[in-house]
Design a protein around this nucleic acid. Structure first.
Lengths: 266, 266
DNA sequence: CCGATTGCATTGACCAGACAATGCGTTGCG
DNA sequence: CGCAACGCATTGTCTGGTCAATGCAATCGG
C-alpha cells in the first residue's frame, strides 16, 4: 500500500471542507502561511511549496482561485442555459441560440462582436461542408459577451460562392437572422447534426474567453443541412464549462414546445 | 508589459511542437534532463523544478502524460460516440445507448457491472423526480467497460414504490431493457430532458474511471417522462471527455433514422 | 537455459530558502 | 480635502538540492 502524498492529503482535506460547507462558495480560504502552520503540526509539513502544491490541485480542479494579494477564494459562478436545439426552431428570428439563453437572465446586457472574412477552412470544416481542398469559405465569427465578459465563441462557415455578396457577409447584426438569409437563397436548414468534444482549452482560448484555471471547454460542431441533404453551414461553438449548462430534449413522437428548467444545478 | 514566466515559455514551446507534429501523438518527449540542458542554454534555466513546472502545464492540459521511468509521452485516445438520443428510440431492445455506441467499434469487448440498491436520493435527483424529502428511490448503478477499461458511469434512479419487486431491481442484465420494464408498468417513456454539466472530476471519479490528469468530464443528467408528464426516471451519466464525442441531431420536421458520423475528430 | 537480483535512468515528493509582483490601505504632503 | 508615495501582506517564480519509487534491462547464480 503506497501512502498518499502529503500535498494530496492537504488537497483532499481542503476539498472536503469546501464540499461540506466549511468554506462556502465565495469565501476566503486560509492563507498559505496559515495552512503551513496548521499542516505543519498535523503532518509535519515544513515547506510552503508543499502547501502550494496542494492548493494547486484545487486550482486545477476549478474549485478555488488565487486573488493576489488577498488569498485563495472558493469559486462559484452561475451557469447559463445553452440550447443547441433552438437553432432550427421556427420561432421569431431574433430569438437565436444566444439571445434565447440570455432572455432567461435578468439584469445582464448581452453584446456580440461580429467579424466576417473569407478563409481557407480547416480540414475539419472542409470535411463537414464537403469542400475540396483549396475551396474557400465565408466565415462569420462572433464573440458573445454578457456585461463585457465573454460567454462563448461562435464561428459559422458557409461555402463561399453560396453567400458571396449577400447579407451573410454583412459584418454586424442581421435582423432576420443569417439562417433566414440562407433560406432565401434556397437552402432552408431542416436538419442539424451536433458533436461535442470535451477538452481543456488552448492558451489562446484561455485568453479570448478569459478562462480561469481548471475550466474545461466543449467544442460544439453544428453541421446543418438543407432539405436536399447538402451540408450548408458548419458552426464551431466554444463553450466554457463553468458558464454553461448544455440542454436539449428528446421525444418519442414529434416535438412540441421548448422546455424550461425548473431545477437548480446538482 | 509583463514578461511571461520561463516555465510558461517552455510549456508554450513544447505545446507548439506537439501541435505542429514535431512530437506526434504517442511519441516520447525529451526527458527532464534533456530539456534542462536545452532550455538552460536558451533561457538560462538552472533548476529541474522549473522544467517540471512547464511540463506540468501540459500534463494538466491533458496533452502529455508521464510514464515513469520511461519519460513523458504525447497522448491521443480514440473517442467513442455517445448518443443520448438512442435512449428513447423504438429499436430492438438490446440496442441501448451503450451497446449502440460499442457496435461502431470492432475488436473491443464491452462489459458492464450492475449494482442495485435502495437509496435516499440526493437533492438534485429528488428535485427532478419530484420526490418529497425522505422518500426513497431505487438505484441501478452501472460501470460500463471496454476491454476492462471503464468508459462511463451510469446510475438510474426511479421512485421506489414504482419498481419494488419488479425486474428493474434485478442486479444483472435485463434482456428486454429496463425501459421496457417501466413501459409494462404503465409508464412508457416518451420525453427526455437532458442536461450536461462540464467540470473537472472529483478524486473518487478519477479513480473509478481511471482518468488521467487534465481530463474533464461531463455530468449528463437525463430525466425521462411518461405520456402523462410525470418524471419517471433520472439517469446520471458520467462521461470522460477524452473517451467520447457526444452526438445528437435536430430536425425541423419529425425525425427518421439515426445518423452516422463520416468525419474524423477536429 | 531460466529465474532472481541488481543496477540504472527517470520521474515523484519534498525541503529551505530568495526575490519579484500585486493590489490594498495608510500615511503624509500640498 | 485630494492625491501621490509608501508599507505590507500575500501569492508568483525560481534556485539547488535530497531522497524515494518505479519499471526496465543487464547480470548473476544455479
Amino acid at each position: 500500500m503506497k501512502p498518499t502524498p502529503v500535498y494530496q492529503q492537504i488537497a483532499d482535506d481542503l476539498r472536503r471542507q469546501i464540499s461540506d460547507g466549511t468554506f462556502p462558495p465565495g469565501s476566503q480560504m486560509p492563507t498559505e502561511a496559515e495552512l503551513l502552520e496548521k499542516y505543519g503540526e498535523l503532518h509535519g509539513v515544513r515547506s510552503r511549496q508543499t502547501i502550494r502544491q496542494g492548493l494547486g490541485v484545487l486550482v486545477h480542479e476549478g474549485l478555488i482561485e488565487a486573488r493576489r494579494p488577498k488569498g485563495y477564494f472558493v469559486i462559484q459562478r452561475k451557469r447559463l442555459v445553452y440550447r443547441p436545439q433552438a437553432e432550427l426552431r421556427q420561432k421569431p428570428p431574433e430569438v437565436d441560440i444566444f439571445t434565447n439563453l440570455v432572455q432567461e437572465e435578468d439584469g445582464r446586457t448581452p453584446s456580440q462582436e461580429i467579424e466576417v472574412s473569407i478563409v481557407d477552412p480547416t480540414a475539419a470544416i472542409r470535411e463537414r461542408l464537403g469542400l475540396a481542398p483549396g475551396e474557400l469559405a465565408a466565415a462569420r465569427r462572433r464573440v458573445r459577451k454578457l456585461d463585457d465578459v465573454p460567454y462563448n465563441l461562435n464561428d459559422s462557415y458557409v461555402r463561399l460562392d453560396l453567400v458571396q455578396g449577400t447579407d451573410f457577409m454583412h459584418p454586424g447584426d442581421v435582423a432576420r437572422g443569417t439562417n433566414a438569409v440562407l433560406g432565401e437563397l434556397g437552402h432552408e436548414l431542416v436538419y442539424g447534426f451536433h458533436e461535442f468534444y470535451l477538452r481543456m482549452p488552448m492558451p489562446d482560448e484561455v485568453q479570448r474567453l478569459q478562462l480561469g484555471a481548471g475550466v474545461p471547454v466543449a467544442e460544439h460542431l453544428s453541421t446543418t443541412f438543407d432539405s436536399e441533404g447538402n451540408a450548408v453551414q458548419v458552426t464551431v461553438n466554444l463553450i466554457p464549462g463553468d458558464r454553461h449548462v448544455i440542454v436539449f430534449e428528446t421525444h418519442r413522437e414529434a416535438g412540441t414546445d421548448a422546455p424550461r428548467i425548473p431545477w437548480g444545478n446538482p
